[in-house]
């Protein structure tokens, strides 16, 4: 982040802020710096957008644990929108950060009662349960949420992860089946499904192999799936005490070649050496 940017036109700063906020891995200290600069120097120019900038200040300052800034931004927001649930949820997040989890659960329960379709609040409530280590409660709330918002793919993934932590791989698999149905061409869902099947145990290795190969038809250079194919087919072979059928052998050999090529092209020498060792291990 350069100082020049901050002294340039405010529109550029605003643009940069929006770019930063769309990133998957957000750098909250940058967001805080940009947003703070905007509200102190250009609040009038921003017009109605200033409130969104305040909102990002609240979230970013919480991540940097600078609660003083959070409180001052929140007071601006609640003065402007005294009845807003969105602001109320932000207040809840501050309570969460300070560790008042029982208080905040009450607040969210209250909002949930008044506005049963408020997604933000329901999601926050689930995270509070999760942070208190109440995974079962989180699962219950998440199931309730998904019965209302069945199309929320991220929520299905979260539910899946919670089931995995609770060792309920059957239900974890079910979550991914839902996702595969809604988006059959996404390789990521097949990949996760294959990994769950493999973890479930030997009865499910056939379907693990099936889904790993499906991933490879959708994304031929998926390293995880290539390793997965080799691992699964060898595991099946070891279990059934038979040599690989010619079709399976072709598949495994192809995966090995493909991996070698991909590693060689990447120019990572340590990686190449480790791959060689791994392949030798399987060949033994």
């Amino acid at each position: 982040m350069s100082k020049e940017l901050l002294s340039s036109d405010w529109r550029l700063v605003y643009e940069e802020l929006q770019v930063e906020q769309k990133k998957l891995r957000k750098n909250y200290s940058t967001i805080l710096l940009l947003a703070n600069h905007l509200v102190t120097h250009n609040s009038r120019a921003l017009g109605q957008n200033v409130w969104e900038v305040y909102e990002s200040i609240v979230l970013a300052s919480l991540d940097c644990s600078d609660y003083e800034i959070t409180t001052s931004a929140l007071s601006k927001l609640s003065a402007r929108f005294p009845k807003s649930t969105r602001v109320l949820v932000l207040k809840g997040i501050l309570l969460e950060a300070k560790g008042h989890s029982d208080e905040v659960l009450e607040l969210y329960q209250e909002i949930k009662r008044n506005e049963p379709l408020n997604r933000e609040c329901r999601k926050r409530k689930i995270t509070v349960h999760k942070s208190k280590g109440q995974n079962k409660m989180a699962i219950q709330e998440l199931c309730e949420y998904l019965s209302l918002f069945i199309g929320d793919t991220e929520a299905w993934l979260e539910l899946c992860d919670l089931y995995i932590i609770e060792l309920d791989l059957y239900n974890a698999g079910f979550c991914i089946e839902e996702l595969i149905l809604s988006n059959p061409l996404s390789y990521l869902n097949h990949l996760k499904y294959a990994e769950i099947c493999y973890t479930k145990g030997e009865e499910y290795w056939d379907s693990a192999a099936k889904h790993y190969t499906k991933v490879l038809t959708l994304k031929p250079d998926s390293i995880r799936a290539l390793f997965g194919v080799i691992l699964t087919f060898y595991a099946i072979m070891k279990m059934s005490r038979q040599n690989l059928q010619s079709k399976e052998k072709r598949m495994v050999d192809w995966a090995k070649c493909k991996l070698k090529v991909l590693y060689r092209n990447s120019g990572n020498e340590t990686g190449c050496r480790m791959l060689e060792n791994t392949i030798q291990y399987f060949d033994k």
Partner: peptide, 17 residues
Amino acid sequence: HGLSPMLEIALIQLDTT
């Protein structure tokens, strides 16, 4: 966390190295 295939690959890679 909690899924085994890639963990097994990592263990094999280090074990053989």
